[in-house]
Each structure stands twice: as structure tokens, then as C-alpha cells.
Design a protein around this nucleic acid. Structure first.
Length: 204
DNA sequence: TAGGCCATCTGGTCCT
DNA sequence: AGGACCAGATGGCCTA
């Protein structure tokens, strides 16, 4: 049974560390997320800012502006709003494919990007270790160039208690772990390779 | 109440 | 000229 533990790095929120593997910034996250993905409150138009909220500029506030310049500015604002909505939609799509998040939580933008980065890194490591496993166990030596031996990798969240059982080194009860089981086309069942990725500090 | 996160407005810059 | 992109500023909302 192979087991890979990321180095546990205790750090205050906001510190950036590169040592952690697949990590989430915090659990629980902010309060319940009511809107489904794609209809988040982020996309709800907010109240227009007051005149004082407009950057202290030499121009009069929007409501007082007219003419071609004002119309251009309003069009540009609309485009910018639309652009940011598209960006948020893409972030929502990214959130939706990240694994094992509690349903009532929502990653912030920066957490989403960091988690995605770490997730990709972890999947890369998964494939690498699966190849190594195949090379070690199949007759005829290594076949490091063929990741096809792995048909899927299943990711679950593991409660802190479970993870502590699975790995007595797990000591941070505030963290959730991501458990990855590698399935193989070559062998029925589960290759006994399990990763426990600490989810304590997402920052790097 | 302070701090984090966010949407929005805005002007500047670059590109087509 | 107009659109895309960016970063700064601002205020609202929410949570600890």
C-alpha cells in the first residue's frame, strides 16, 4: 500500500506556501451558497454606486454626463460588466469540476485558481505513480510511457477522523483530505495506491 | 467593528 | 474609432 502524504505546513491564512499538494484554503468556507452555479449572486447586478463611490475623477458622475463621451463610457461599462460576468462563469465552471467540495461551500476566486493548480499537479502525480506501479508489477519491466494503464482516478473527500485513522500522521483536525483511488484497466479492482492530500494550506 | 470578498465604475493602454 | 484588457478606487455584504 503506497501512501503519499504531502508535507503538512501549518500556516496562517494568507501565507503562500509551495509545499502543499492538493489543498483547499479553508473549511468550512463562507456561509451557505444558495444560488446554483451559473446563477450566483456574483452575477446579480448590484446597486449602482453612489456618486461618491465613483472614482474621484474630474468627470461628472454618470447620471450627469451626456453626449458622446458619456455614451461611450456607459457602453464601455456594459462591456466591462459583461466581460467580468464571463470571467465569473468560467470560474464557476472550474469550481464545478473540482473534486470533493462540501455542497454548501464555495471557493473564492483565488482559492479556486489555487485549488485548480494543485489539483492538476496532484493528478499529474497520480499518473506518474500509477505508471511507476505498473512498471514495478508488470512482467517485462517498465512501461513508463503509457499512462493508459490508469482508467480512472476517483477522488473522495475524507473526514478528518477517517484520515487520521488512515494515516496516523494526520494531525490537523481542521483539514479535509482528498482521497484518490486509482483504477486500472489491466487489473480488476483498485490498485492499492492511495493518496491523502492535506488540505490545510492552499497558498503558494 | 474590522477585515475579506466582491461587483462596479473608471481611465489608461494596446490592438484591430 | 472602438473594443479588450487591466489595475485602482469605492462601497456593499457577510462573517468572526
Amino acid at each position: 500500500m503506497l501512501s503519499l502524504m504531502s508535507p503538512k505546513v501549518l500556516c496562517a491564512r494568507g501565507e503562500l506556501r509551495s509545499a502543499d499538494l492538493l489543498t483547499l484554503g479553508r473549511f468550512p468556507l463562507r456561509g451557505p451558497v444558495n444560488q446554483p452555479s451559473g446563477e450566483s449572486s456574483e452575477n446579480e447586478p448590484r446597486k449602482p454606486p453612489t456618486a461618491s463611490s465613483a472614482k474621484s475623477c474630474k468627470l461628472p458622475p454618470r447620471c450627469e454626463r451626456s453626449g458622446q463621451r458619456g455614451r461611450r463610457r456607459m457602453k464601455a461599462n456594459d462591456r466591462e460588466r459583461h466581460r467580468m460576468h464571463n470571467l465569473n462563469s468560467a470560474l464557476d465552471q472550474l469550481r464545478s469540476i473540482l473534486p470533493a467540495l462540501p455542497e454548501d461551500t464555495k471557493l473564492t476566486k483565488i482559492e479556486t485558481l489555487r485549488f485548480a493548480h494543485n489539483y492538476i499537479w496532484a493528478l499529474t502525480q497520480t499518473l506518474r505513480m500509477a505508471d511507476q506501479h505498473t512498471a514495478d508489477h508488470l512482467p517485462g519491466g517498465s512501461d513508463l510511457g503509457s499512462p493508459v494503464s490508469v482508467s480512472s482516478a476517483e477522488w473522495d473527500s475524507v473526514s478528518p477522523a477517517e484520515s487520521a485513522e488512515a494515516d496516523p500522521r494526520a494531525c490537523c483536525t481542521s483539514a479535509h483530505d482528498i482521497n484518490c483511488k486509482i483504477f486500472s484497466r489491466d487489473q480488476p479492482g483498485v490498485i492499492p495506491v492511495t493518496f491523502y492530500f492535506r488540505s490545510l494550506c492552499a497558498y503558494q
